[in-house]
Design a binder for these strands. Sequence first.
RNA 1: GGAAAGGUGGCAGAGUGGUCGAAUGCGCUCGCUUGGAAAGCGAGUAUACGGCAACGUAUCGCAGGUUCAAAUCCUGUCCUUUCCGCCA
Length: 441
Amino acid sequence: MIDINQLKNNEQFRARLLERAPDLDVTKVLELDDNLRKERQKNENLRSERNVGTAKIAELMKTDKIRASKLVLDMKVVGAKIELGDRKIAKLENQIFDMLAKFPNVPSSGVVMGYKEANKVVGSFGKKPEFTFKPKDHVELCTSLGLIDYERGTRMSGSGHWVYIGSGAMLEWALLNYFVDFHTKNGYKFVMPPHLLNYESGYAAGQFPRFMDDVFFVQRGQGTKFDPKAAKFLAPTSETALINMHRGETIPGDQMPIKYFGYSPCYRGEPGGYGASERGTIRGHQFNKVEMFIFCNPDESTMFFDELVKNAEELISGLGLHFNTVALAAGDMSAAMSKTCDTEVWIPSLGYKEVSSISNAICYQARRANVRTKIAQHECSDGVCRKVVKTDYAHTLNASGLATSRLIPAIVEQFQNEDGSVDIPPVLHKYMHGITKLTPQ
RNA sequence: GGAAAGGUGGCAGAGUGGUCGAAUGCGCUCGCUUGGAAAGCGAGUAUACGGCAACGUAUCGCAGGUUCAAAUCCUGUCCUUUCCGCCA
């Protein structure tokens, strides 16, 4: 949710927003907002009148019952007016909210306009492997190495599901352990959130109501009428849970930043068929992901964005994989984000595929989730300094760190040998119980 | 899952229709006192929105209702605690 005051008073803000989304009816929202302010003022005055009258009645009750009962009649009329005004206000608020909820975040400075084709590679790491033989694709490799059983996954749960088995499960677990160690060393706090989240959490994360069809709702038992506000849904990413760690809270500024990393399986509807480019584990209904999430003071989010990008890059570099970092154009970022970089790992049979998405939501998510920060400042005038505490919305950032389901394809394809074996990245050895090389079974 | 009790400011805790944005205590801030500290004394101390300000409005878990007037009465709901049941 953007700040309507910014929209109203900050021309640059408005221009930049309209550049990202030219069709927004800004005039209409501001007009509604103007009406709202007027109606509110009107009603506040009426309330004030009633408060005065009510106090008067209390006093008159003791001395002059007749005048008191006359006043009661007057106040009834005022009360009716207030009720009418309240209805008008509620209607305006809803209209404004509905419109504003669809407004995307304002792109940070430096973010280029345009769509996917305007994305720009800003970093390239490692070397693209060159094969002296015909490389196999990840589905073939994972099958021949006995890492993943696609068919049995489909049998159990339908398309978009797979089973990690044996050294495949171990490799998956090793990656997660590697991430956990990395983030812990960097001072991030480990969070294992519930997988089932309530409606309010989905709303605060900015996923509802828009993406309600993309998540899996669950309810207990059968025959109960489905009610999305009462049902729970499976987290599509632990980000959804992490933003809600501090929903509705005001965090003292000196406790910022709060750096979390969460692990959860991610459950997603992913409607539509899977093309050849998304075979295997590239896109599924359930995958594992570790997510970094930062709450910080407004002036720090730019700095932490860079930190998150660096962390994601180090994680992938650590595995020895070749990948690019790409700055997304405004049209390719999700609506809630002000700035996004993707890291795209090289999967020889497919090209570059996103494994991490790093975003700065600035105050957009925090407004929705109502997360604030209290910042103490020293304000000096005439040589006298005073401590002034200001409350402002926090900034939030998130970054995958990382999703495993595209890393395994990248690992098996980039590190494959002619004989069909695959070398395991050295950083994972300590989690692999002595396995350093995967060989066909 | 069943039963009971309860949700009030940073914390504890009073308040059962008007004098309540809310006693009192603790904590915190500033000042006095002191060589310094403690104690003592005095003043202050919730948040949001609107307004240059004076000030106004709203908020006692949440949502409705009754009333001229609700922390207080009524209904629903969520959460917490305790007891019982069931259980990985």
